[in-house]
Design a protein around this nucleic acid. Structure first.
Lengths: 98, 98
DNA sequence: TTTAGTAGCTTTGTATTGCAAAGTGCTTTT
DNA sequence: AAAAGCACTTTGCAATACAAAGCTACTAAA
């Protein structure tokens, strides 16, 4: 296998990378917090969250705080696996390329 | 600064990432070897090498082996710095995002 | 009760990028 | 002489990325 073959195409985007790393250490984060942490427009964030969800890497919880809508996002076990896999692929690429 | 702010946009591409990591450990690599290592089409590789060069991250040596052209690529000190910077930004993003 | 604001989107439109494929000029191999 | 390889450039298309605007369903302020 070539050195870049195990890199995950989904994680070529910094915003998706950022979402994943935030969700690796925070079990649940809502839309607005993600938006502020990453400093992106809401439309842009929504579309990236969408592709992460389509790939089964995050799951979405639509809930309420009182009577106000509150959408939170969490990483799935498959997402965790994929992200870790990507990171080790990165490491291998950097360390063992010869 | 937000967690993705220090990631280098140039290194969002796996091919460019691959080139850089190859050139981090191999002082000079020619076009064809890069092409085979990364398993990409020559046109595609050429364009990625071009953006890396335009950004001053690699330098190009056009030489000959006998009378046959031989182009080799090497990382620049600025490229090394940028790449290392990207890697530490990645690490920080992953470890300290909170 | 109008007005304004917030959350979390979707839609629209544009600009950028990624890529394969084909073409180029040279050289080497057969 | 024909075929193939090297290191590209050009062409053209398809897939992103992104901002901005619109939209829904609320809540809060005046």
């Amino acid at each position: 296998m070539n050195p870049i073959g195990n890199l995950n195409k989904i994680f070529e985007s910094r915003i998706r990378l950022g979402v994943m790393s935030i969700l690796m250490v925070n079990s649940e984060v809502n839309f607005n917090d993600l938006k502020q942490m990453l400093e992106v427009t809401d439309g842009n964030l929504a579309s990236h969250l969408n592709t992460l969800e389509e790939n089964g890497y995050i799951k979405v919880y639509k809930g309420f705080i009182g009577r106000k809508t509150n959408t939170t996002y969490a990483i799935t076990t498959s997402g965790e696996k994929a992200f870790k896999g990507h990171l080790t692929a990165l490491e291998h690429m950097i360390r063992f390329t010869k």
